[in-house]
Amino acid sequence: MKAFQSRISTGSDSYAQNRADMLAQVDRMRSLEARAAAKSEQRRPVFDKRGQLSPRERLAALLDPGMPFLELYNMASYLVDDPDPETSIPGASILLGIGYVSGVRCMVFVDDAGINAGAMTGKSVDKALGAIEIALKQKLPFVHLVESAGADL
């Protein structure tokens, strides 16, 4: 089998411009992710009063330290429920991704009760169904840290 040879010239001006443009988009996405985390963190007093960990703390406590966590569908619901790019919160009130729990790669789904008290958004179901589909196809255990918006589970 013949080895693949890239024709990309990493020293070209167009490569440098494309790279700079992509890094700017990644920075924008990270700032939007940080917006969701900050919004969730605003409910810290409620979590503290109840003796609860925040959703991100619960996720961190579950995952194996030092192992990778691949967040999925992190931009779900952005500009859907709130069309204003300056105030829209991505994530569909769910933290979701693939990480390691006791050495086992798992799909991990965490309701973010810090955003809308954990109520589902217009895209929450799509995000959840996408996670289930990936978990089934990849034969991943599915771990759901549930906290609802008041429904009696």
Score class of each variant (00 low, 15 high):
Met1Gly: 10
Lys2Met: 09
Lys2His: 12
Ala3Pro: 03
Ala3Leu: 13
Phe4His: 13
Ser9Cys: 09
Ser9Pro: 00
Thr10Pro: 01
Ser12Tyr: 03
Asp13Leu: 03
Ser14Trp: 10
Ser14Tyr: 07
Ser14Lys: 12
Arg19Asp: 06
Ala20Phe: 01
Met22Ile: 10
Met22Gly: 03
Leu23Ala: 11
Gln25Trp: 12
Gln25Arg: 15
Gln25Gly: 05
Val26Ser: 07
Arg28Lys: 12
Arg28Ala: 13
Arg30Thr: 02
Ser31Phe: 06
Leu32Pro: 04
Glu33Ala: 03
Glu33Met: 13
Arg35Trp: 02
Arg35Leu: 07
Ala36Gly: 06
Ala37His: 02
Ala37Gln: 08
Lys39Phe: 03
Lys39Gln: 14
Ser40Asn: 02
Ser40Met: 02
Glu41Ala: 15
Gln42Val: 06
Arg43Asn: 14
Arg44Ser: 05
Pro45Asp: 09
Pro45Glu: 10
Val46Tyr: 06
Phe47Leu: 11
Arg50Leu: 15
Pro55Cys: 09
Arg56Asn: 09
Arg56Cys: 00
Glu57Asp: 11
Arg58Glu: 14
Leu59Phe: 11
Leu59Asp: 05
Ala60Asn: 10
Ala61Gln: 13
Ala61Asn: 11
Ala61Lys: 14
Leu62His: 04
Leu63Lys: 06
Asp64Ser: 04
Pro65Tyr: 03
Gly66Ile: 10
Gly66Leu: 07
Phe69Ser: 09
Phe69Glu: 07
Leu70Ile: 09
Leu72Asn: 04
Leu72Phe: 08
Asn74Tyr: 14
Ala76Leu: 08
Ser77Gln: 09
Ser77Val: 04
Tyr78Val: 02
Tyr78Phe: 15
Val80Leu: 07
Val80Gly: 00
Asp82Phe: 02
Pro85Ile: 06
Thr87Glu: 11
Thr87His: 13
Thr87Asp: 09
Ser88Ile: 00
Pro90Cys: 09
Gly91Thr: 04
Ala92Cys: 12
Ile94Met: 11
Leu95Pro: 00
Leu96Pro: 00
Gly97His: 00
Gly97Gln: 03
Ile98Asn: 01
Gly99Cys: 03
Ser102Asn: 15
Gly103Thr: 07
Gly103Pro: 05
Val104Trp: 12
Arg105Gly: 07
Phe109Trp: 05
Asp111Gly: 08
Asp112Gly: 06
Ala113His: 04
Ala113Pro: 01
Gly114Phe: 00
Ile115Glu: 12
Ala117Ser: 13
Gly118Cys: 06
Ala119Val: 01
Met120Leu: 06
Thr121Leu: 12
Thr121Trp: 03
Gly122Ala: 13
Lys123Val: 08
Asp126His: 10
Lys127Thr: 15
Ala128Cys: 10
Ala128Lys: 06
Ala131Val: 00
Ala131Phe: 00
Ala131Met: 00
Ile132His: 05
Leu136Ser: 10
Lys137Gln: 15
Gln138Cys: 08
Gln138Gly: 02
Gln138Lys: 15
Lys139Met: 05
Pro141Phe: 13
Phe142Gly: 02
Val143Pro: 01
Val143Ile: 15
Leu145Met: 06
Leu145Ser: 02
Val146Phe: 14
Val146Thr: 11
Val146Asp: 12
Glu147Gly: 13
Ser148Lys: 11
Gly150Ala: 01
Ala151Cys: 03
Asp152Trp: 05
